[in-house]
Amino acid sequence: MSTSVRPKTKFRHSRLSARNREWIAGYLFVLPDALGLLVFLGLPMLLSLVLGLYDVDGFGAYRFVGMANYTKMMRDPLFWQSAKVTALYALMLVPLLYVCGLSLALLVQKTNRFNGVIRSMFFAPHMVSLIVVALVWQFLVVDKIGVLSRLTPALGLGGISFLGDPDYALFTVVAVSVWFLMGYYMLIFLGGLQDIPAMYYEAATMDGAGPIAKFWYITLPLLKPTSFFVIMISMVAAVAGSQAFDIIWVMTGGGPANSTSVLIVYIYQQAFSFGAFGYAAAMASILVISLMAMTGLMFLLTRGGRFSYE
């Protein structure tokens, strides 16, 4: 005897509507990633926010101090120095990466064997550990014996101390960062360039546009979504990227005279050199919040990289 509630029908009906089933499947697919992000990124961020309210000595003692770490920050000249260095580093890195990445992409845009090799060469730094990259560059620019340091007097520039002079050290680490990252941004721009249909260039050719007019009126405007993405992630990379820490930590350690001490280097020093975990956590929280505010503002201003014609 069948006791089924559902009357017998020709087709097997699901208890869920087709739309709900799709919805559930979608969320099931992103669940593993979402969980991973939550546990390994969200939770630590939340904990560091909490940690910022404590005085932590690193040996198990936690003392609630409220906003004390934050007021300390406001009065800490080294924090402000690091914030300034971070801003300078970002102000140089973001535009340089944009220009270098796009220029390289335009140069190797045509697909042929030669350009394939060139593309791989520009991307090659990413195959190497950042520490190794920093060590090699340090060897190239170190005072007296570095290859570049020996070259500058020969070029009549005098003996420049690339890493020892507070006026040059930041430029040096910016240059190495650009060198390391530009191949990656070249790839992103190559993808963006390939997304621009060839017909627009043909139409522009018929309209009488030369290479420069095509770049200004076709390439650049149609690259807007890519540009938005590049500026956004290069900004994040400048403020909190692994290259910012590794290259600076290995090449200068934040010196000389704190001239290359970006915030993540200073935070690391406070936490692991001086054991001020609570203070470091408070600064990290400020860093993350200001980064979120910046990207959020950019997102709002550009409507998420979408444009008026869409």
Partner: peptide
Amino acid sequence: NIAMVFQNYALYPH
């Protein structure tokens, strides 16, 4: 001094 109309129009979207 010729003008062309393309299959996909190729109107500049921006």
